[in-house]
């Protein structure tokens, strides 16, 4: 079964740790991203509630840290995430997590 990343983006705080952790791991340049934090900027919804979302997602440079996983570890972005909203596992396991959360979750297969 192929692996995937699951993110609970209700609580991605947009700290950028995953981007730098990924860059360190892949040893890529300053303008390259294996993980990228996207922002949907703040606005007020019609009911007055505030909307402001960040979501970290893997680009085509992401190999889900094959080397780390091979050695018994987990992807660098998952380990360093400050809000602990990133998870790694099989697509099946990640789908179960998404189903459990029920809202503001996403699965990525880079």
């Amino acid at each position: 079964m192929a692996n995937a990343l699951y993110i609970d983006y209700e609580f991605c705080s947009g700290c950028h740790s995953c981007e730098i952790a990924c860059r360190n791991e892949l040893e890529i340049g300053i303008n390259d991203f294996g993980m990228k934090v996207l922002e949907d900027k703040p606005r007020q919804n019609p009911d007055g509630a505030w909307h402001w979302d960040y979501i970290a997602y893997p680009t085509e440079l992401c190999d889900l840290c094959a080397e780390r996983v091979e050695a018994g570890g987990i992807p660098a972005c998952v380990m360093h995430c400050q809000a602990k909203v990133l998870y790694f596992g099989t697509i099946e396991e990640m789908t179960a997590k998404l189903a459990e959360k029920g809202s503001k979750g996403a699965i990525f297969v880079p």
Binding site: C15, S17, I20, A21, N24, M79, H80, Q82, K84
Partner: peptide, 9 residues
């Protein structure tokens, strides 16, 4: 528990 902020990274 494994987390770090960008400054230490």
């Amino acid at each position: 528990r494994g987390s770090l902020c960008p400054r230490c990274l």
